[in-house]
């Protein structure tokens, strides 16, 4: 039987969310991140198992799909299906876009703006690639986008595909951008001009962006929930 990550020392846990615990560990000679989807005791066990299994499947499928499309994502090393854990590559020498932006304090100097805009442009073109491959991330925030050094090159990695889906609908892609816009502007006040650059690069690199941006405008008016049944 595999060692349960819950038996790993708590010191190895680096993050706990509503759905998963994130540990830092090692898989042979590689540093790795272990993502455990823990059991929710308030759910019916059968439903619980199906949901967890489906989310893990969704996550690794998206990682593979992105990888094949030439989008930088962490490698997967091992799946512990008994304990609902994914062992994946730790992206070394990286920081989140959130951390990156927070290095700068508003009011931004012209130089700051230049750097921030250039990174925003990179993020926008990766999102264009993501959506042109019909992958919808489902939880885009500035914490789920990593920048890997060296400085100036900043390779953009996407992480945390637990809520992702494959969809060709402009609606879903519009909501994806909307979620990011909300997260971006609420985490980083007075960065509207920077987020604009994300969208500019997005539309430049994605032929179908017109339709998606139109949806984004609609979603802004009404919020992200479209279907009002029940």
């Amino acid at each position: 039987m595999a060692t349960k990550p819950s038996e790993l020392s708590d010191a190895d846990m680096i993050q706990q969310g509503a759905e998963a615990k994130i540990y830092q560990g090692q898989f042979y000679d590689k540093q790795c991140i272990i993502k455990e989807r823990f059991k929710k005791t308030y759910r019916h066990p059968v439903l619980e198992e199906r949901l967890t299994h489906r989310r893990i499947a969704q996550e690794v499928k998206a990682l593979l799909r992105c990888r094949k499309a030439g989008i930088a994502v962490p490698a997967v090393y091992f799946m512990d299906t008994c304990n609902n854990c994914i062992y994946m590559e730790k992206v070394e020498h990286s920081l989140t876009v959130r951390e990156f932006i927070q290095q700068f304090q508003p009011p931004y100097t012209e130089e700051d703006n230049q750097i921030l805009r250039s990174v925003a442009g990179k993020v926008g073109s990766i999102l264009a690639k993501l959506h042109s491959n019909d992958i919808v991330h489902g939880d885009l925030t500035t914490s789920n986008i990593l920048l890997k050094s060296p400085y100036d090159i900043w390779e953009v990695y996407l992480i945390d595909f637990g809520l992702s889906q494959v969809s060709h609908l402009a609606e879903d892609k519009g909501v994806d951008l909307y979620v990011l816009e909300k997260a971006f502007l609420s985490t980083h006040p007075r960065t509207e001009h920077i987020f604009e650059q994300v969208l500019a690069a997005y539309s430049k690199n994605y032929p179908n962006s017109v339709e998606v941006l139109k949806k984004l405008e609609e979603v802004r008016q009404r919020g992200r929930k479209r279907v009002m049944v029940g």
Partner: peptide, 25 residues
């Protein structure tokens, strides 16, 4: 494994991922 993928990944990482996620792919 395509060359496009290898722009952002080492060959070993591409191979390891395919082995690890095989039954989900």
């Amino acid at each position: 494994i395509s060359d496009a993928e290898l722009k952002h990944s080492k060959l070993l990482d591409s191979v390891a991922t395919r082995i690890a996620v095989k039954e989900f792919a």
